[in-house]
């Protein structure tokens, strides 16, 4: 049986930030593949290049060298518009500090990606309400982002990432700003998403969170130093 095509494929990817005279090597030749249906945890010390990697995979950035293929398309060769489109249709993002639009209701925040895909209003509202219900916020549709707890905001962000039915969910320290109980809930939610057939890559500093993944990448100084597959801990149980 053929292996399913990789959702993400990095070939010798480097990312160099030019800071005046000095060059900061955020990634130094990373090669890896993420297959459809995986749940990958990325760990590593601060400044090791995890966020840089996520931004590349999420089509927010382009590699300085090497190639980065998302859903078969070479991110480095796409125009800004095409990258935005690939990002909107294929990738869902969840950030450490939620990144919701201020003073805007949960529903409208979740609608946002659909607006840019040209989905009609009625359809948008239906799908957004459905996504919010799925993350347990069916009764908070019209709460504004500043009227919600951190855990609730992250649920809204996850609903927003899922509403486009992406192939790939990227979460950069999604529990970094949350207490451990809420973190466990969010992690359970992500595992549920994964169980629903979406490939998930998440960055975390917490070994407890990483224990829920099938595969752990450890980064150090711009390189992947460990790529370990493991038995996934069951959902909702704090290790």
């Amino acid at each position: 049986m053929d292996a399913p095509p990789p959702v993400v494929e990095l070939r010798d990817v480097a990312r160099v930030y030019q800071m005046g005279d000095t060059a900061v090597h955020a990634l130094r030749g990373v090669t890896l593949q993420v297959t459809a249906g995986e749940l990958v945890a990325v760990m590593g010390t601060s400044g090791s290049g995890k966020s840089t990697l996520m931004n590349l995979v999420g089509c927010l950035d382009r590699p300085s060298s090497g190639s980065c293929l998302v859903d078969g398309q070479d991110v480095g060769k796409l125009s800004r518009g095409a990258r935005a489109q690939l990002r909107g249709r294929t990738v869902g993002f969840v950030f450490q500090n939620f990144h919701l639009l201020p003073r805007t209701s949960a529903l409208e925040n979740v609608e946002l990606p659909l607006v840019y895909q040209g989905v009609a209003r009625r359809e948008r509202v239906r799908r957004s309400a459905e996504a919010l219900t799925r993350v347990g916020l069916g009764d908070r549709l019209h709460h504004r982002s500043n009227e919600m707890s951190g855990g609730q905001m992250q649920r809204v962000a996850i609903a927003r990432a899922l509403v486009t039915r992406p192939r790939l969910l990227l979460a950069d320290e999604p529990t970094g700003n949350l207490d451990s109980r809420t973190s466990t809930e969010i992690m359970a939610l992500l595992q549920e998403v994964h169980a629903g057939g979406i490939t998930v890559v998440l960055v975390t500093h917490s070994p407890e969170i990483a224990a829920h993944a099938q595969r752990v990448l450890r980064m150090h100084d711009g390189c992947v130093v460990e790529d370990r597959r493991q038995q996934m801990a069951p959902a909702g149980v704090a290790a």
Binding site: G58, L60, R80, G81, A84, Q85, R87, G88, R89, F93, F95, H99, L100, L101, P102, L112, P113, Y116, Q117, R160, T164
Partner: peptide, 16 residues
């Protein structure tokens, strides 16, 4: 600026 970043992250093209 942040709002613009958020919109781009969820798929807004430069034209949008």
């Amino acid at each position: 600026t942040r709002e613009i970043g958020i919109r781009m992250a969820v798929g807004a093209r430069p034209g949008h």
